[in-house]
Simulated assay, not measured.
Amino acid sequence: MVVSVRGAGVVVTGAGGGIGAALARRFAREGARVVVNDLDAGRAEAVAAEIGAVALPGDASAVIGAALDALDGTVDIYCANAGLGSGGSETAPDEVWDAAWDVNVMAHVRAARALLPGWLERGRGRFVSTVSAAGLLTMIGAAPYSVTKHGAHAFAEWLSLTYRHRGVKVHAICPQGVRTAMLDATGSAGDLVLRPTAIEPGDVADALFEGMAEDRFLILPHPEVAAYYRARATDPDHWLTGMNHLQRKWEAVD
């Protein structure tokens, strides 16, 4: 099966670089009408100019209205890609936790609120959530990120189970390390866990299109994540012990 997006109205948040820019480029190459959203206006405008898209800089939570205007009233595909890679433990300040929750979870909820009435009326729509493998598993040294990415995954699951019979397709992209600025910001924890198997942003976009063609909810650009996820569910204590070994290894070198 091949999914055509030619002529579709697509919004990609956090598309000024990294995975978001790769998604925007791939959708544009496939003939979609793309809106590029990013907090950084210069980066959004640069990507939009490169691919012949519309730049709508600003908060991802507030982009839907302007995107509908730019796309003649129809958003067919929404890529909830903007995210905060907040590190730290339970001791991270409340404002760090609040910001991670707002961007990594509530921005998705607000987008769904705005888009679902139209999608349900038309009987079609596609919601793509960039969750990260941290949302299926976890990530050492990054409690706010891990916890809120679990929330993003849970919300994507809920959307899918609630609306799939009404024509709404949902995909949760769950890569491990991707060669982006966010990976660079993870420091020694990322060097230990993510960088050895890191892939390019374009590989993530390719995985999404393969997953859309196969109508899969989980998009795993790193296939080994499926085995980790299975092991976690089958024997959580064994899996947690293994992750704790990684934690101790990180503490020894950090």
Rank of each mutant, 00 (worst) to 15 (best):
A205N: 11
V193L: 14
Y229T: 02
L84I: 15
D203C: 03
K249N: 04
A24L: 11
S188Y: 01
A213T: 08
W239C: 02
G14S: 12
G31S: 13
A46L: 05
A62H: 01
A142F: 10
R33N: 12
G52V: 06
A227Q: 02
D235G: 00
R230L: 11
I173R: 06
G16K: 02
Y163T: 05
S89V: 02
P57K: 06
I19E: 05
F27R: 08
M139P: 00
A32C: 12
V54T: 15
W158P: 00
E30L: 13
A152K: 01
A80W: 07
D76S: 09
S61Y: 00
P57Y: 08
V178W: 03
V253T: 14
D38V: 04
A154Y: 06
V193T: 15
I64G: 00
E90A: 15
R113T: 10
G18R: 08
H171E: 04
D102H: 10
V170P: 10
F217H: 05
D94F: 02
V103N: 02
L136S: 13
P144R: 12
A55G: 02
Y163G: 03
V11F: 13
D102G: 01
C79M: 03
H238Q: 12
L120D: 09
A60D: 01
G190C: 06
A181H: 06
P57Q: 11
L137G: 10
Y163E: 13
E251H: 10
P175M: 03
M243L: 01
G58S: 00
L39C: 03
H165E: 15
L120R: 12
R126E: 14
V3Y: 14
N104W: 00
D184Y: 00
W119N: 03
I199A: 01
G73C: 13
V11M: 13
T234Y: 01
S89K: 07
P201A: 03
N81K: 11
A67P: 02
T180A: 14
A111C: 12
V36W: 11
R248G: 01
Y229A: 12
S86N: 11
